[in-house]
Write a protein that binds this DNA or RNA. Structure first.
Lengths: 217, 217
DNA sequence: TATTGGTGGATACACCGTACGGTAGCGGGC
DNA sequence: GCCCGCTACCGTACGGTGTATCCACCAATA
């Protein structure tokens, strides 16, 4: 089993899944592979390139959803696949939008979404398409990042009310008790029960409706 | 001039503006302040806490836009202030959405946007408000990240066509020449002339229209 | 004057990415 | 058959990071 870019990327992904991107180091990857650290540089230029490799592996999984019947179903499938991938590989959300995704599978995903959106009503020319792709991707990136961040803090503080009160509570409740943030307070207190996937879905359709129902300029 | 959290955060922001977040280290900050590295730990627990401090300083600038006459003007002002701040402090976009923003000024910005959105038509109850805030913030985070990333790669590769062809060109043009990404190719070739701020504005109004014009469920 | 408390500094540790020099094995030319 | 050159592999080393710990000094108090 002679070592390869794929094998390196695979173990790197596994380690990143377990210990996060900060806990990922070339030395640990090498040790996990039973190899000296410098061996990796025969297959990869940088840690940065290794990261690009990992990212494109994830995009390969996203690209697997393929094409659905209608443009809207395709977009929905890609968006949900992206979200699922980010929830499986939380480090993926740390990189989302932070560097250009130019791997072959990333391009394939981009092509699929762009092709789907170009068939949407309200998308008339290339400028419309560029804006639509931008809006959709921005929403996906932002949503996924937000959800992963929330999940992390929930895991760090503990899900239950008691642990929350113990960790963030003292500061946050004191802040909210000042009365300077009444709307935020209402959101925190009353609005914590919404399902994440439903919210994602809801906002996604809102965005798509906004794109398609745009009046002619 | 005895050193303080504010002074530390200010020089940290300056260094991060110049050399990026990766080029920021406690040792450099300390050296810039003419102080041993460990002195900083008398004012800050972690590098993480220092980052939170820096982030909240930026949010203070964003919060300065205050309240406009209508809910829509307020939201637009906050969104643009966020974008401007991220373009001034590109490291800010690296952190956007990646950690909970709980500083007092961040909460103030959150309160202002939530309050404004709660007055928007189509936002009837707390659940609507939560979703609307989520959609808007997701879009802002994603858009700003994308724009900063593009600006960075443009700066790295050089703006002009020749340098671009020399750096990313060989790989990207070869990829696009395969014919597997026709829509992306069209976007890259034909659609590079759009103004970033206009696009941001356009998509922002699209999102807001989508939120306000949602049918009653 | 002796003691104590706090303040600033230096040193040290574990870890990181990666540049560099060396070595062992192997295929090809004479 | 012998030797050479080349390639694949590897260990060591350097400069940097965040941070814990200990130490020296100095002011104020008993």
């Amino acid at each position: 089993m002679p070592l390869s870019r794929e094998k390196i990327a695979a173990t790197a992904i596994r380690l990143a899944d377990e210990h996060g991107l900060d806990g990922l180091s070339l030395r640990k990857i090498a040790k996990e592979l039973g190899v000296g650290p410098m061996r990796l540089y025969d297959y990869v230029i940088n840690k940065s390139e290794l990261l690009d490799l990992m990212v494109d592996v994830v995009y390969a999984r996203i690209a697997e959803v393929g094409q659905r019947s209608g443009w809207r179903d395709t977009v929905l499938a890609i968006a949900h696949a992206t979200r699922d991938a980010a929830l499986d590989h939380e480090w993926f959300s740390d990189v989302l939008g932070g560097r250009p995704h130019l791997g072959p599978h990333a391009l394939a995903v981009g092509e699929a979404t762009a092709a789907a959106l170009s068939a949407a009503p309200g998308v008339r020319d290339i400028d419309d398409l560029q804006r639509a792709v931008g809006a959709l991707n921005a929403f996906i990136v932002g949503s996924v990042r937000r959800e992963v961040t929330e999940r992390r803090t929930a895991r760090a503080t503990g899900t239950d009310e008691a642990a929350f009160q113990a960790s963030l509570g003292p500061y946050l409740t004191r802040m909210l008790k000042t009365g300077r943030y009444p709307t935020v307070a209402r959101l925190v207190i009353d609005g914590a029960h919404l399902n994440a996937e439903e919210t994602f879905n809801h906002n996604l359709t809102t965005i798509l409706d906004g794109i398609t129902s745009r009046p002619a300029t």
